[in-house]
Simulated assay, not measured.
Amino acid sequence: MKAVVLAGGEGRRLRPATLATPKPLIPIDGIPILHIILTQLERAGFTHVSLSLGYRAHMIKASFGGSCSPDLELDFFQEEEPLGTAGPLALLPPFEDSTLVMNADLLTDIDFADLVRRHKKSQAAATVALSRQDIDIAHGVVELDEEGRVTDFREKPRLSYLVSGGIYVLEPSLLRLLPPRGRHDMPALLDRARAEGERIEGHVIEGDWHDIGTPEQLDLAAAAFRADRGRYLGRGAAAALCAGSGASQEVVGG
């Protein structure tokens, strides 16, 4: 199985930490988040990962000097300008099979291999991993009809939403809808696919999912990881595998 990890962002919301360190190398309880992700992918049976890099790319490549393990091949694709969450895919060779695409700024215990299996079984053009997020409203919520009459009043309700987890499985055919160059984001690509009649599936993550886009979110992710590393790295594992050298390739594009 193959995967693409989008690791080119600047992480502006995490400043000042990301002024010196690229966001994918921000440590979660001492381990760079990108190393955790690559360890998870290797343990899920992925054999090849393409890393799309941009901001401080040299630091990311130097952080592991090649591959995480002899069983995981890495290659690097350099963004000469920010290309969004889908634009970097235009730099890669055409997909040969269903391919996992994910952001490098999240912590999750999702079963990546199971997500790919579910996607293939659905015969969809794309599957989006979703996280259920609850929001507590501190005030009473009032609903009105068109004439201004109160139709509902809920005191401090908890609202529930499904948000994109930044993890996708894409079919090769979907990339025909991607512009050959320039910035393009995944929601626009998937909307375009739906408009052309393609089937887009959603898979709700049953376990844990954390965005690490802000210092507060990073702290929550670090606390969860610190409390149960085995949940994310596998039972019996004390550390990530990404610490050695191995085969790697580099491609520059933009």
Rank of each mutant, 00 (worst) to 15 (best):
A3K: 00
V4P: 12
A7T: 01
G8E: 11
G8S: 08
P16A: 03
A17W: 07
T18E: 08
A20E: 15
A20S: 13
P22Y: 00
P27I: 08
G30N: 01
G30Q: 01
I33P: 10
L34W: 02
I36V: 07
I37N: 14
I37D: 13
I37W: 13
I37L: 15
L38R: 01
L41W: 00
S50R: 03
L51I: 02
L51S: 00
S52Y: 08
S52R: 02
Y55D: 12
R56C: 02
A57S: 13
H58I: 10
H58E: 15
M59Q: 07
I60K: 01
I60V: 09
I60P: 11
I60H: 04
A62G: 13
G65R: 04
G66Q: 01
G66F: 07
G66M: 06
S67I: 07
C68F: 06
P70G: 09
P70I: 12
D71Y: 14
E73Q: 08
L74C: 07
L74A: 04
D75S: 09
F76K: 03
F76A: 05
F77T: 15
F77R: 12
F77E: 14
E79W: 06
E80D: 13
E81D: 10
G84C: 10
L89D: 01
A90G: 03
A90P: 10
A90W: 03
L91N: 04
L91P: 07
L92E: 10
L92H: 09
P93W: 11
D97S: 04
V101M: 01
N103R: 09
D105L: 05
L106F: 05
L107P: 00
F112W: 02
L115E: 12
R117I: 12
R118A: 04
K120P: 14
S122H: 06
A125I: 06
L130D: 11
L130E: 14
D134H: 13
I135D: 13
V141D: 05
E146V: 11
R149V: 15
V150S: 04
V150E: 05
R154G: 07
R158H: 08
S160P: 09
Y161E: 15
Y161T: 08
L162D: 14
V163A: 15
I167C: 08
L170E: 04
E171V: 08
S173F: 11
L177Q: 10
P179L: 04
R181A: 14
H184G: 06
D185I: 14
D185P: 10
P187E: 11
A188M: 11
D191H: 11
R192L: 13
R192K: 11
R194C: 14
A195Y: 13
E196M: 11
E196Y: 07
G197Q: 09
E206S: 08
G207C: 01
G207T: 00
D208Q: 08
H210V: 02
H210I: 04
D211I: 15
T214P: 00
T214R: 04
P215H: 05
L218H: 06
D219I: 11
D219W: 09
A221K: 04
A227F: 13
D228E: 13
D228Q: 06
R229P: 09
G230S: 06
R231T: 01
G236I: 09
A237E: 08
A239C: 08
A239V: 02
A240R: 05
A243K: 12
G246D: 05
S248C: 14
V251C: 03
